[in-house]
Simulated assay, not measured.
Amino acid sequence: MTTVNETKEMYTVGEVSKICHISKKTLRFYDQEGIISPDYVSAKNNYRYYSKDTLSSIAIIKYYKQMGFKLCEMKNINSKSSFYYHEKNFRSKIEELQAEERRIHDKLIELSDWYDLLHEAQTVSEEYNDAVSIKYLTDEPYCCLTQDFHYDYMDSILNIPWVNHLEDNDQAITGPVILKFPSYIEKPAKTSQTAMIMQKSVYPKESAVSKINFGGIFASIYHVGDFNEIATSYQKIALWAAENSYICGPECYERYVVDYWTTKNSQKFVTEILIPIKKSDC
């Protein structure tokens, strides 16, 4: 134990505060939490003194704090300061930050995709001409789940069982809801009984959630307005395909760019209809 005669080689709280740019209040808190304690406390006046070695350890504490360590993770740094102790601490913190990096990455992708959807909807609304175009989509993995379909679009898009299914299987999704229907003829005729809900997987990994690769060459048309009027857009694709010698289907997809997630005004809805096509041999 340091004696009072040795305090000349030590530093008072005020000196440590000035040298290390750390408040006296923080020093007292570090002492209470067992992070850094004074080497000597005067029995006469309760003054606290720190040795040069302890003073130097404040630099280590600051560096640990800069790297994201919590105070509770800094305890015993001085008493267990060794290569293996630091290695274990750093490995644990690296793994924690990597997990946090992934969470931030997921959120950034999801927010960016939603922002892009709003921009896409704005462009479609400003330049809308209900023309059919050919679109190529690269194959990408989508989470999917087949459900009964009753032409209740709100129930299918704001799909609580779907959200619960994804949460239960720790799946992050992004982008618009897409519904796949078995027949591009039955869907506008309102005779479809099932639909596969699809959303792009942020991290396509093995899990209990079913996956489907979605991509290929499609006839594409944007429908602006209420879902109950969407049959007219299907008719335009069918007419365009016949005029340009394309075979459609058999399935079709509805990609909801603007829907109940964004607005309750059905006249503002923007839906992209995608029907697989191939050139007729005739």
Rank of each mutant, 00 (worst) to 15 (best):
I94V: 12
Y30T: 04
I61H: 00
I212Y: 13
I61L: 05
R103Y: 13
I22Y: 01
T123G: 07
I104F: 12
I36V: 14
C143T: 09
S23G: 09
H223Q: 00
P276I: 02
I185C: 05
L145A: 06
D155K: 15
Y153V: 08
E15I: 04
A59N: 14
C248A: 07
Q66C: 10
K25P: 01
D53V: 11
K268D: 15
I35L: 05
Y234F: 12
D170W: 12
T263E: 05
T146L: 11
F181Q: 03
I197N: 03
K180I: 00
G68T: 04
L179Q: 04
N164L: 08
H165I: 00
Y246F: 15
K135N: 08
S207I: 03
G34P: 03
K70H: 10
K278Y: 12
S207T: 11
D53W: 08
I178W: 03
N46W: 05
E272Y: 04
D259N: 08
Y84H: 10
F90Y: 12
K88F: 03
E229C: 08
P182H: 02
Q66Y: 14
F83Q: 08
D139T: 07
V16L: 07
S210G: 08
N89F: 09
T174I: 06
V163R: 15
N76F: 10
N129G: 06
E9Q: 12
T232A: 14
I237D: 00
E167C: 07
I178L: 12
T138Y: 12
V132R: 01
K75G: 10
E254V: 02
K18N: 11
K44I: 15
E110N: 09
Y260M: 03
S23E: 02
D148K: 11
V132Y: 03
N45W: 05
D106G: 03
V163N: 15
A43R: 11
F214R: 00
S51K: 01
V202T: 07
I237P: 00
W162F: 11
G216W: 03
T138L: 10
C144W: 08
E206C: 05
R103L: 11
K187H: 12
A43K: 13
W114P: 01
K211M: 11
E101D: 12
R28S: 08
R255P: 03
Y184H: 11
I19A: 06
W261E: 08
I277V: 14
E254R: 01
D113M: 10
I94A: 07
Q122T: 11
S220E: 09
I178T: 12
E6Q: 15
G249Q: 07
K65Y: 06
Y256A: 02
F218C: 01
S207P: 04
T263R: 04
P250I: 03
N159H: 09
